[in-house]
Computed example of a mutant assay.
Amino acid sequence: MAIVLGGNRYGKAEVRLVRVDRDSARHELTDLNVSVSLSGDMTDTHLTGANEKVLATDTQKNTVFAFARDGIGSIEAFGLRLARHFVDSQEAIHHARVTLEQFSWTRLEIDGEEAPHSFARRGDGTRTATVHYDGTQAWVVSGISDLTVLNSTDSEFWGFPRDQYTTLAETKDRILATAVTASWRHSTTETDWDASYSTARKSLLSAFAGTYSRSLQQTLYAMGERVLQTDPAIAEVRLSLPNKHHFLSDLSPFGLDNPGEVFYAADRPYGLIEGTVLRDDAPPAGPAWD
């Protein structure tokens, strides 16, 4: 029986990068978390320890900072620049994956006027991107994580199977809340990345708000469908929606009624609904989701 080396990759994880654009008195702030992963002709390195084909992970980190000196732009474009550089400049590297998170900041105000260089971290979701490049073709997946949303009504859950272990009551009116993690695969790299992200985010929120939900699965499909309807360059949407349960609090021990106004927001356990919505003629995904 032979023992052989299987798939492998290596890189620098979670390079924290902040760039301040100072072209005017009104500064712009870009706050990223960048991870690089490379693969290729690494057999000798694993079997003998030879390092002549290994681009040091410290060099990868330095490259991220050096490329930021010329500006970042959209995270998808920045990821493409990095991925193409690593593959095209290193003979032994055949594939690069760059994942990026962008943290949002909002401007502070001074006496009702925007402060030119003061910011506060926002909590309205983290923009994400994953870029792959193999020397010939590039794949880009954009997305958002930790986008917490809630509908205080227009949600039901009933008609589900009941067995000896079922205690959950059916409901025709409930709070529906989730923290959206969504990613969408582009069919082209010739895209206005910022406009595409803005449209997709608005589509997710609009579908969540506008869907009368009889299940979180129904809402998931509506959100993915809306993204595909509003951007023909997106081939596929994947969503992960934890059900942030809100249970009606029993106030009867205190002689009080509770007409759907006071809830216990449960932390865990939680239902987790995941799914993919795609065009039936979508091009192959390649390694986009890896």
Rank of each mutant, 00 (worst) to 15 (best):
T199N: 01
G123A: 10
S118C: 12
L278V: 07
N258Y: 09
R26K: 07
F157M: 08
T188I: 04
A200Q: 01
S249C: 11
L55I: 01
L272V: 15
A115L: 04
G275K: 07
R121W: 10
F247M: 12
Q90I: 00
S240A: 04
A96K: 05
V98P: 00
K12D: 08
R214Y: 13
F119K: 12
F208G: 04
V34M: 02
E14N: 06
H27P: 09
L239S: 01
T57M: 00
A282M: 00
A2V: 06
L204D: 02
E190G: 00
D250F: 15
E170G: 14
I175W: 12
L5K: 14
S152G: 11
S24V: 08
D194R: 09
S249F: 11
D231H: 04
V36H: 03
Y165S: 08
W158N: 14
Y264W: 01
P161G: 09
V277Y: 15
S196Y: 05
H245D: 09
F208Y: 15
G6R: 11
A282Y: 07
T48R: 09
R84D: 12
S152R: 03
A222C: 14
L82A: 03
Y10W: 09
T99I: 06
H132D: 01
N258Q: 07
K202G: 09
L251T: 03
S155C: 15
A66F: 06
T189G: 13
V87C: 03
G210I: 15
N243W: 15
H94M: 03
R268H: 12
S39I: 05
Y212R: 06
G123S: 10
V20A: 04
W193R: 03
V87F: 07
T191W: 14
G79W: 07
D231W: 12
W139H: 10
G271M: 07
